[in-house]
């Protein structure tokens, strides 16, 4: 019965081919450092899932943002767990993405024909940092407020364009409800959409070129 169902689906979807091409690829001899890209992908999915669940209760308004998070932490079943995973997963993701990048650099895996994979990876690092920066404001407590005050002020120190950048980030000259709302929008819609798209291209390039082997005497 299950065999029949699988055959029916396989004929139409090509599950066997998908498995062979996506997961059963030949790999050069590697070690645990080679798993950090997959670890980054796992963390992205985990952050996406927990983030979606947090939006069930979180309210991006200066009046209610902090209260809604207090509610999640104290009154919702397992709210502490979902938010805890999202909170610590965010830091862990930056760390894992960064070590992944260091590994690629040290093993010279960014060279021909993988330059584009590397460049997109740099974009993914910047977007991950952007997720951290925008997510940090959302609790709307003192730490979040002042961290964003300082962060946007730094962005505002750019010559000539600084004041415009500062106003564009804050949605005006001051940190306000507009800032919270646009950071929320960037955090849950814009940046994740870009991340997901670029991750797709990144993965396509990895599957297309295969993983690089470690440099040996001949390289």
């Amino acid at each position: 019965m299950w065999q029949k169902l699988y055959t029916w689906l396989d004929e139409r979807l090509g599950l066997g081919d998908m498995y062979a091409n996506l997961l059963d690829r030949p790999e050069p001899k590697g070690n645990w450092w080679n798993t950090l890209g997959s670890a980054s992908l796992f963390l992205f999915i985990l952050q996406g899932a927990t983030g979606i669940f947090l939006t069930v209760y979180y309210t991006p308004s200066p009046d209610h943002a902090y209260d809604s998070i207090t509610y999640i932490m104290n009154d919702v079943a397992f709210g502490w767990l979902i938010r805890g995973i999202h909170h610590w997963g965010a830091s862990l993701m930056v760390l894992v993405v960064f070590i992944h990048m260091v590994r690629v650099f040290v093993t010279a895996s960014y060279k021909y024909p993988r330059e584009l994979t590397w460049l997109i990876g740099v974009g993914l690092l910047l977007l991950t940092l952007g997720m951290g920066f925008t997510g940090y404001l959302l609790p709307w407590h003192q730490m979040a407020y002042w961290a964003t005050t300082v962060g946007t002020q730094i962005a505002g120190s750019v010559p000539f364009l600084g004041e415009f950048i500062l106003k564009a980030l804050r949605g005006g000259p001051d940190l306000s409800a507009l800032t919270l709302q646009r950071f929320f929008s960037a955090h849950i819609w814009m940046l994740p959409a870009l991340l997901a798209g670029l991750i797709g291209v990144h993965l396509y390039l990895i599957i297309r070129h295969g993983e690089s082997h470690f440099p040996d005497e001949e390289d």
């Binding site: 985990l46 397992f78 767990l81």
Partner: peptide, 14 residues
């Protein structure tokens, strides 16, 4: 993750 999430989602209904 999945089992706590069910509790998380239906908490206000209980």
């Amino acid at each position: 993750l999945g089992i706590p999430v069910i509790g998380f989602l239906i908490a206000p209904a209980l």
